[in-house]
């Protein structure tokens, strides 16, 4: 077993353990933390597959942005865990049935009986590159040449998403209260404070 094999098994094991943690932990916040760990370990596996760009994107986008958003949402929601757990037992048989079916299909497709996958010699033929090889550079070359039209249109779709979101939310509704900084700055002492003269009160 080489060091890379060892690292692979460590990270793969961690992916499985943390993925189990996502579905089994009682606290939704813990679930999200486990999901972060799952993504992080998957990123490490990608890194070992020489897909460093995808690995970095996974950490930056999923761990850095999407999961933090998830965390905010889960923390803001008032989830009643006791209520959510009701009926767990009644759903259990259906859940187990589905799990068994999916497991059976996976064993059938990628299990030892399958000729394509069990041919481990093919797995060891994976091409490895030297230190001067840059996955990012190759991806960039393909994206900006072969796939340039698709890439640009994807960018246009993002622009449309921004326009749509702003045009649907940026509006003045009549009953809402909002600040007008200009008016606030112009306010004078007399608008807020009124000095009246009155007799001094004497304590009796």
């Amino acid at each position: 077993m080489t060091i890379t094999d060892f690292l692979f098994f460590v990270f793969a094991g961690m992916v499985i353990m943390s993925a189990l943690g996502v579905v089994t932990s009682k606290n939704p916040v813990h679930s999200i933390m486990f999901l972060v760990l799952t993504f992080f370990c998957s990123a490490a596996i990608w890194l070992m597959l020489e897909a460093e760009f995808l690995a970095i994107i996974l950490v930056l986008v999923y761990v850095g942005a999407v999961m933090v958003l998830f965390l905010f949402v889960v923390m803001m929601l008032d989830i009643n865990i006791v209520k959510m757990r009701q009926g767990f037992v009644s759903y259990l048989p259906v859940g187990i049935a589905f799990a068994v079916v999916i497991l059976a299909i996976m064993v059938w497709v990628v299990g030892p009986a399958s000729p394509d996958v069990s041919n481990t010699a093919a797995l060891h033929q994976a091409v490895t590159h030297g230190a001067d090889y840059s996955n990012t550079k190759m991806l960039g070359k393909i994206i900006y040449t072969d796939y340039v039209l698709a890439f640009e249109i994807a960018a246009v779709i993002l622009l449309v998403a921004i326009i749509a979101a702003i045009s649907l939310t940026l509006r003045r509704r009549p009953g809402t209260k909002h600040q007008i900084p200009g008016e606030q700055i112009k306010v004078k002492r007399d608008d807020r404070l009124k000095i009246i003269s009155m007799e001094a009160e004497v304590k009796k």
Partner: peptide, 30 residues
């Protein structure tokens, strides 16, 4: 772009560009 797509990826992107605009337009009068 959908009409001129010669590739499944292009067809899908054209369709999404169209659909996204239409969703927003339906909700246009908020």
């Amino acid at each position: 772009l959908m009409v001129s797509a010669n590739n499944m990826l292009m067809l899908y992107l054209g369709l999404e560009l169209l659909s996204l605009c239409l969703y927003a337009l339906v909700a246009y009068n908020r």
